[in-house]
Design a protein around this nucleic acid. Structure first.
Lengths: 258, 258
DNA sequence: GCGGCGATTATCGTCGGACAATAAAGTGCG
DNA sequence: CGCACTTTATTGTCCGACGATAATCGCCGC
C-alpha cells in the first residue's frame, strides 16, 4: 500500500528541495522491508510491478534498486533474476570500511593500536560468555593450526579465523563489527612477517594459552595472554626491521566464504 | 582512456557469468578516481559524456552512478547538478554500521562493553599523542559543559563531542572508525539516564580529570579515569533500574514512546 | 574593467517504448 | 513423479524525448 505521492508531497523530506523520485522509491522499498511488510529472504515484486505500484517509470525503480543493493537491503543471487529482500549486515559494511581506511592511508601502527584495545577485551569477554560450541570451534582451529605450522598461507587464514572465533565467542556484535575490518587489514601482513621469522610455534603457543583460559573461563588470563599475543605482533614487526608507519593495503584476493 | 570493452572481455571478472554493464561502468569510474585520473573534488564528466566515452547508454551510466553514490565515490551537493568525485570516508560508513547494528538488535550491554575496550585505549593514546590544538579543543569543550550543566540536550551533544575529541587526539583513524558508530548509539540513551540522575557534575569531573591527564601526557591516568568514567555509565544505568539487555535504537527526534 | 543580470545552453530527472537474452513457470510425456 | 520442452515473465540494455533548472555566456551599466 506504500504509494508514492504523485502530486501531494505527503513524504516531505526535511530540505525544501524536492527529493528525486528514485530516492523516494528507495526509501519506500526500504520502509517496506523494515516494517516487515516484505520479510528478509522474500522475493521482491518485479521491476515493472514496482514501477506500476509506485507510479513511476521502470528506469526510476532500477536506479532505486541499484542504491538499495549497495545498502544491503536487496541482493540478487548470481545468475538468478529474482531479487531478494535483506537487511544490511555489518559484515558487508566491513568491506567498505576497509577500503575507506586504506584510501585514508591508515598505518599499521594505528591498526595495531586498535587491535591492542579490542582483542584483549574480546578475549576477556569470550572467557566469560563462551559456549561449548565456541570452545569446540576454537579447539578445531588449534588442531588445524598444528598441522599447518609450515604453510604460511594456511596459517594466515587460520590465525584470522582464530581471532574471529574468539570475537564470536563474546557474543558481542558491537565488538565483532568494530574489529572485523581492522582485523582483516591487520593480520595478513603481520602474519607474513611472523612466518618469515619462523615464529609459528610461538603463535600457536599463545593461541593455546588463550583457548585454555577461555576454556577455564578465566577472563583475566585470557585478556593477559591476548595482550601479550598482540604485543608479539609488534615485536615481530620490529625484529623484521619493518616500519609500522607504512599505510596498510588491501590483502590479496578476498575469499568469499559462505 | 578508460574504455569499456565492447567485445573483448579485457576486464574479465572472476565469475564465468558476464557482469552487467552498469557494474563494469561503476568499477571503471571508480578506477579512474582511485588511479587519480579524476581527483577527489573534481567534477565528473556529464552522464551523456560518460555514456559516449564508455560506449553505453546513459541509463546504464545512471545506474552505475547510483551505486557509486552509495559507496561514497561520487557525491552531489544538494540542489546542484554537477557531480563530484570523492573517496569513501569512514565517517559516512558509520551511519550504515549504526543501522546494521540496530537492525541486529545489538544491546546496550554490547555497546557498553565495546566502549569499555575502546574509550580507555583512546584516552591513553590521546595522552601520548595530543597536540596543543587537541588540548585547546578539549578545554573549550569543558568550558562549554560547565555552562550547560542544567541543559540535558546540550550536555549530551557536548559529551559526545568530548569523547570524539579524545578520539581525534589519538590521531588513530582505526580507533576513530571503530568507535564512531558505537559511540553514536551508546551515548545518547546513557546520557539521558545520567542527566535524570543529576549526575552532570560527576560527568564533568571525570572529563576534567581525563583532560588533565591528557594535558600532562599521563597515559596511565588518562586510561584509568576514562575507564572509571565508562564504568560510571553502567552504574548509572543500574541505579536507574534500566535493563542493559534492551536493544539500542537510532537516536532520532520524534519517536513515539509511551 | 568589472560585477551583476537576463538570455542561452547543458545537464539532470523522468518518462515511454522497444528488444534480446534468459530465468521462471507451465505443460505434456513417458 | 521426474524430466524435457514450450511459453511467459523479467531483467539488462538501448533509443528517443521533454520539462525543469543549474551552469554558462554575453551584454549592459557603472
Amino acid at each position: 500500500m506504500t504509494q508514492l505521492p504523485s502530486a501531494a508531497p505527503t513524504i516531505a523530506t526535511e530540505p525544501g528541495q524536492t527529493e528525486p523520485a528514485f530516492r523516494l522509491v528507495a526509501v519506500a522499498i526500504e520502509a517496506r522491508i523494515l516494517s516487515g511488510d516484505i520479510q528478509p529472504g522474500d522475493t521482491l515484486p518485479s521491476e515493472t510491478n514496482l514501477a506500476e505500484t509506485l507510479g513511476v517509470n521502470r528506469s526510476t525503480v532500477r536506479e532505486a534498486i541499484r542504491a538499495l543493493e549497495q545498502n544491503g537491503f536487496v541482493r540478487r543471487e548470481t545468475g538468478r533474476k529474482k531479487l531478494f529482500a535483506a537487511v544490511p549486515q555489518s559484515r558487508d559494511i566491513s568491506r567498505r570500511l576497509k577500503t575507506a581506511m586504506v584510501l585514508d592511508h591508515v598505518t599499521f601502527e594505528e591498526l595495531w593500536e586498535a587491535m591492542f584495545a579490542l582483542e584483549p577485551a574480546a578475549a576477556r569477554s569470550a572467557a566469560q560468555r563462551r559456549t561449548d560450541d565456541d570452545l569446540a570451534a576454537l579447539d578445531a582451529n588449534l588442531a588445524q593450526m598444528r598441522l599447518a605450522l609450515h604453510d604460511s598461507d594456511v596459517l594466515t587464514d587460520l590465525d584470522i579465523a582464530f581471532h574471529h572465533l574468539v570475537a564470536l565467542a563474546t557474543g558481542n556484535r558491537a565488538i565483532q563489527a568494530a574489529r572485523l575490518p581492522i582485523s582483516e587489514l591487520f593480520y595478513p601482513p603481520f602474519l607474513a612477517v611472523i612466518s618469515r621469522l619462523n615464529a609459528a610455534e610461538r603463535l600457536l603457543f599463545a593461541h593455546e594459552k588463550i583457548v585454555e583460559a577461555i576454556r577455564d573461563q578465566d577472563s583475566r588470563q585470557a585478556q593477559d595472554w591476548m595482550e601479550k599475543h598482540i604485543q608479539d605482533f609488534q615485536r615481530g614487526y620490529e625484529l623484521a626491521n619493518l616500519d609500522m608507519g607504512t599505510p596498510a593495503a588491501l590483502p590479496r584476493a578476498g575469499h568469499d566464504k559462505q
